[in-house]
Design a protein around this nucleic acid. Structure first.
Length: 950
RNA sequence: AGGACUAUAGCUCAGUUGGUUAGAGCGCUACCUUGACAUGGUAGAGGUCUCCAGUUCGAAUCUGGAUAGUCCUACCA
């Protein structure tokens, strides 16, 4: 074995072997266990969030596979409508082409081409992570099978009356020319202005204070071209007399009724609101209440139309409405139009005032463009009826969120859910299975042929399919069952559905988790006909942030690529990576500075296992997880520790008798102790897996391997293995324990650290008396009560106490570690004597002792440094070794500590209330502590007095 | 505006139903290249558990409030 752990030398070969042997596929035996991967975006590459969640999923998958379950971790990716279309359009732009130059069909071919060449990035990266997904079943949301599922679901929902088409206001992205759902809109606070305009009153009307105009305030002056009403609060005395009167819209001369509506807040602005029903969601509702028309004034680019279009609320065009707009506005961009409106009002003396104002601006999460509420025909899913069963499922525990608090987030959204706009004006995606005849009648079906048969439309009637595609999340919502072959085949759904757990971030609870629940429960039923849940548990992970708690983003230049952690990267390469392709190139200098500060030496290669272990260590219940590279380095060292422990074990067992072929075996106290402790670890790890406490699990494994197995057990094995007088049976016992405990630890750690455990396991398998080609298919260790040994644990605690006591004297007194010490024991019990007798060689070796002498009652002790182990006094004679003043200081320190503690406990015990009300056991424990401290203090005082008398 | 979450060592974080000497990693101090490991060993230093009040015999832990920070949802034009 290499002297240090070299991850890059082993990871690739093991993964290749696992995959080639198809060990990731379900065994076909046992109870099923299934996790569906949240499908990464096909344009995406692996980021820390993926690495984090996939590590957890892989750990769960490997754990359950080792427990003998019929385990499937289903991989795949989604087609990411907008993102993918953008990527390919950018590629076209470099050839000076647009998608319109190619036409729809050719463009889609081009996207598939791109997908074949570049869509696989993330699967390659997942292999580097060690993900044990069943690659033979990899799916893509645009596959034939999944596309069938999408059509089937669409048609059935339409037939069930849960999908409808309507002309409504939608969130329109003027950059991408598509509608998006409300979830895809990000509302951000931005600085703007509040313009106050004067709208002259018609017919000589006057306000209460005698003015012949109303002042309306707006953040979007350009929309005044689409105003149809002015609203005031019905209780606002300033305006009550004007309700029912009109204002004359400047620039157009349109007469707008003044209406009363509770929506208006009299306190805000002037108390008068201009109402633009076709360009604002609130105004839409106000207009509807007051029988207004909908007046659209923008085209798909959010440029002003030459002629406004009027609609009724049922979506019908009002053909005879005069939609004339003022000269010079047609074709203007909305922000140009705004400037012109303001200038025109100013010129007319109708610009009352401008005030600074912060407002929430809606922007498309992908385009960054300001979203325009726009009147269009779109398809919607009626969400309420679908939501109901899912709410019940969470309420009655059929679906459980971990941590539980996320259920509240889920409920609050579900109970107030809005219809979901599912149509997108894109080319890349599932084209909506709806056809129109020349009159605009809608026919929904699985294919044009089906539609013609079903609706008895012969070939003479021309049908055209809806141009739009479905929201990508629509297909992702079917993920748990579409990937299993629904609707064509039911057998896999029967075997693996409902899946066991969904591992995901809280950021997509609404986008994906909730919608998956709605779709699944509508379409998949249990044997008794009740809706089937997609998964029994949802483990909601935190979001990975940088070491300062900042979200990782390209523009902040703080993104960490998991592969850079695994492989290492130089500072220069990291800077280059972070500063290339920035939207705002001026940020480069700042990013370089902070990157060089955080990573002056770049990143060291730590290997996959160390990264995975770090990620599980960070998987606590919090919402945010700040990733600190320092932690990773610590766990890289841990891997090296395991490696070297294995080296030690091999050096002492290879080619020797480890009891794999029988033979007499005698276990030492140390053997019995470490075996007993191992049982505790095994039950802890199982419990932590069940509770999704990967942080505590990692911690437990770390502590055991480092602080018990390496620090103590390996050291305790040395006196046995080095003792030429020791019997074969004892040596065989120690070797067997060494290698078998290590082997069990490897299996325990394998779900989190697959590579290093496989590498070592293969080299110690035979020594440990095991068979099998790979650790990943070995049984997961289970605790056995019969191997627990309280006595051994107590005895080792005593041994450790004595050793640590002596080491403490050595350390504090600056006695060279190499110097062998003579030690005296005094005042011990019979049990102390037994323990000494049984463990003398352990003590001598581990504390580096020259001799141990038991002082009988009458014996005079020489001047010594003292350490108490219970009531036993451990004395290190001072002659020539110990500085009196230093020993006084050391004893003084212990004495202070003991006195402080005693005072605290006595305070408790002298409190009548405590004695009266606290449980017996607690009181007894405190008494015991107090007694021990009193004895302790007496000893220390005696010792100090003796020193002073010198 | 409503809601949620967070506040523990210099830094990043654990602390399960109230009873611990409040822990880990990294960093820090001293000593040590001893035959698994200097990516190491041994021994240390370092915390009024944000603040205030309450419940309790007993609070890092439960309750209320304050402060600071983060996020989500909804918005006043």
């Amino acid at each position: 074995m290499e002297k240090t752990y070299q991850p890059q030398a082993i990871e690739g070969k093991h993964y290749k072997r696992w995959e080639e042997n198809q060990w990731f596929s379900p065994s076909g035996k046992g109870e099923s266990y299934c996790i569906m991967i949240p499908p990464p975006n096909v344009t995406g590459s692996l980021h820390m969030g993926h690495a984090f969640q996939q590590t957890i999923m892989d750990a769960l998958t490997r754990y359950n596979r080792m427990r003998g379950r019929n385990t499937l971790w289903q991989p795949g990716s989604d087609h990411a409508g907008i993102a993918t279309q953008m990527v390919v359009e950018r590629e076209l732009a470099r050839e000076n082409l647009t998608r319109h130059d190619l036409g729809r069909e050719t463009f889609i071919d081009r996207v598939w081409e791109w997908k074949e060449q570049s869509g696989g990035t993330i699967s390659t990266q997942m292999r580097r992570l060690g993900d044990s997904v069943d690659w033979t079943r990899e799916r893509f949301t645009m596959d034939d099978g999944l596309s069938n599922a999408v059509r089937e679901v669409f048609v059935r929902l339409y037939q069930d009356g849960l999908i409808y088409r309507g002309k409504r206001l939608v969130n329109w992205d003027p950059k991408f020319h598509t509608a998006i759902s409300d979830l895809e809109v990000e509302n951000k606070e931005e600085q703007g202005s509040l313009w106050h305009f004067r709208y002259p009153l018609a017919d000589g009307a006057k306000t209460a204070d005698g003015k012949d105009y109303l002042v309306v305030a707006t953040t979007r002056p350009e929309t005044m071209l689409g105003d149809t009403l002015v609203a005031v609060n019905p209780d606002d005395e300033r305006y009550t007399s004007l309700i029912g009167q009109h204002v004359v819209l400047p620039l157009l001369g349109r007469k707008l009724p003044i209406v009363a509506d509770d929506y208006v807040d009299s306190e805000f602005g002037s108390g008068c609101v201009k109402i633009t029903p076709a360009h604002d969601f609130n105004d839409y509702e106000v207009g509807k209440r007051h029988g207004s028309v909908l007046l659209n004034m923008f085209d798909q680019d959010a440029q002003v139309l030459h002629q406004a279009e009027a609609y009724q609320y049922d979506g019908k065009r009002i053909e005879d409405y005069d939609g004339s707009l003022p000269e010079g506005y047609g074709g203007l961009d909305r922000f140009e139009a705004r400037k012109k409106i303001i200038a025109d009002f100013d010129a007319l003396g109708l610009l009352d005032s401008i005030k600074d104002h912060t407002l929430m601006v809606p922007r498309g999460d992908r385009s960054g463009a300001v979203i325009e509420p726009w009147l269009t025909d779109q398809w919607y899913v009626s969400a309420k009826p679908l939501a109901e069963p899912t709410i019940k499922a969470v309420e009655n525990g059929d679906i459980e969120f971990v941590p539980k608090q996320w259920e509240n987030t889920f409920f609050s959204w579900m109970r107030d859910i809005q219809d979901w706009c599912i149509s997108r004006q894109l080319w890349w995606g599932h084209q909506i299975p709806a056809w129109y005849d020349a009159q605009g009648n809608i026919f929904v079906g699985r294919s044009e042929a089906e539609v013609r048969t079903q609706y008895k439309l012969d070939d003479s009637i021309a049908l055209t399919q809806d141009e739009d595609v479905l929201d990508t999340w629509f297909s992702s919502a079917l993920w748990t069952f579409s990937t299993l072959g629904w609707p064509e085949r039911e057998d896999l759904v029967k075997t693996f559905h409902p899946t066991n757990v969904l591992v995901t971030g809280f950021d997509i609870i609404f986008f994906w988790v909730a919608r998956m629940m709605m779709m699944t429960m509508h379409f998949i039923k249990n044997d008794d006909g009740t809706p089937q849940v997609p998964f029994k548990q949802v483990y909601v992970t935190g979001l990975i942030r940088d070491e300062n708690g900042q979200k990782m983003s390209k523009s902040k230049g703080n993104v960490i690529d998991p592969l850079d952690l695994i492989d290492g990267i130089s500072a220069d390469a990291l800077v280059a990576k972070r500063t290339s392709g920035l939207m705002q190139p001026k940020l480069a200098a700042k990013i370089e500075k902070s990157t060089r500060k955080s990573f002056p030496e770049g990143m060291q290669a730590t290997g996959t296992d160390a990264l995975r272990f770090t990620l599980t260590s960070l998987a606590s219940q919090g919402r945010d997880i700040n990733f600190d590279v320092k932690r990773l380095e610590g766990y890289r060292n841990f891997c090296n520790k395991i490696w070297n422990a294995a080296r030690y074990v091999l050096m002492n067992t290879e080619g020797q008798d480890c009891g794999q072929n029988g033979g007499e075996v005698e276990l030492t106290l140390a053997d019995r102790w470490i075996i007993s402790r191992l049982q505790g670890l095994e039950s802890d790890v199982a419990r932590y897996f069940d509770n999704y406490r990967f942080d505590l699990m990692s911690q437990a494994i770390y502590e055991f391997i480092w602080n018990e197995y390496c620090d103590w057990y390996l050291e305790l094995s040395k006196p046995v293995l080095w003792d030429e007088a020791a019997s074969d049976a004892i040596k065989r016992g120690t070797r067997r324990t060494l290698v078998r405990v290590l082997e069990a630890l490897l299996r325990l750690s394998h779900p989190v650290m697959p590579f290093i455990t496989e590498e070592i396991w293969l080299s110690i398998r035979d020594l440990a008396g095991r068979t099998g080609e790979t650790i990943m298919l070995q049984p997961f260790p289970e605790a056995e009560a019969s191997k627990m040994d309280q006595q051994a644990e107590a005895d080792i605690d005593w041994v450790k106490g004595v050793i640590v006591g002596i080491r403490n004297i050595r350390g504090e007194m600056n006695i060279a570690p190499g110097k062998a010490l003579p030690v005296l024991f005094q005042k011990g019990s019979e049990e102390d004597r037994r323990r000494l007798q049984e463990n003398e060689s352990f003590l001598k070796t581990l504390a580096k002792l020259e001799s141990i002498t038991w002082l009988e009652d009458g014996d005079e002790a020489p001047m010594s440094a003292t350490q108490l182990v219970g009531n036993l006094k451990v004395l290190v004679p001072m002659a020539g070794l110990i500085d009196v003043a230093a020993e006084q200081a050391r004893l003084g320190k212990s004495l202070d500590k003991a006195r402080g503690e005693l005072a605290r406990i006595e305070g408790k015990l002298s409190n009548d209330n405590f004695v009266a009300k606290a449980p017996e056991a607690v009181i007894a424990k405190e008494r015991e502590k107090a007694d021990a401290l009193v004895a302790n203090i007496e000893e220390l005082q005696g010792q100090l007095a003796q020193l002073e008398s010198l």
